[in-house]
Amino acid sequence: MEIEEVAAAEQVVTPWEVSAPDGVIDYDKLVDRFGCQLIDAAIVDRIAHLTLCPPHRFLRRGIFFAHRDLNRILDLYEAGEKFYLYTGRGPSSESLHLGHLIPFMFTKYLQDAFKVPLVIQLTDDEKFLWKNLTIAECKRLARENAKDIIACGFDVERTFIFTDLNYVGGAFYENMLEVAKRVTYNNLRGILGITPEDHIGKVSFPPVQAAPSFPSSFPHLFPGNDQLRCLIPCAIDQDPYFRMTRDVAPKIGFQKPSLIESRFFPALQGESTKMSASDPNSAIYVTDSSKQIKAKVNKYAFSGGQASVELHRKLGANLDVDVPIKYLNFFLEDDDELDHIKKEYKEGRMLTGEVKQRLIAVLSELVARHQRARAQVTEEMVDAFMAVRPLPNMFG
Rank of each mutant, 00 (worst) to 15 (best):
M1Y: 03
M1K: 01
V13D: 06
P15H: 11
A20S: 08
K29D: 09
A41V: 13
I43H: 13
D45R: 03
T51L: 01
T51V: 01
L52D: 04
C53N: 03
R72M: 07
Y77H: 14
E78R: 06
E81Y: 15
E81M: 14
Y84F: 13
S92H: 07
L101V: 15
I102R: 06
K108F: 08
Q111K: 05
A113N: 01
V116F: 02
L118T: 02
V119L: 05
L122Y: 04
L122A: 00
L129Q: 02
L133T: 10
C138W: 13
R140C: 00
R143D: 03
N145S: 01
K147G: 00
D148A: 08
I150Q: 03
D164F: 12
Y167T: 08
F172E: 00
L177Y: 08
N186D: 08
G193P: 07
G193C: 04
G193A: 03
G201W: 15
S204L: 10
Q209A: 11
N225Y: 11
Q227M: 13
Q238T: 13
P240D: 13
R243E: 08
S258Q: 09
L259Y: 02
I260C: 07
I260Q: 04
K274V: 15
M275N: 04
A277R: 13
S278P: 11
N281T: 12
I284N: 00
K291S: 10
V297P: 03
F302A: 08
Q306A: 07
I325W: 02
L338V: 11
L338H: 07
E347D: 09
E347Q: 10
E347W: 02
T352H: 00
G353Q: 08
A361G: 06
A361E: 14
L363Q: 07
A384S: 08
F385N: 03
R389E: 14
F395H: 11
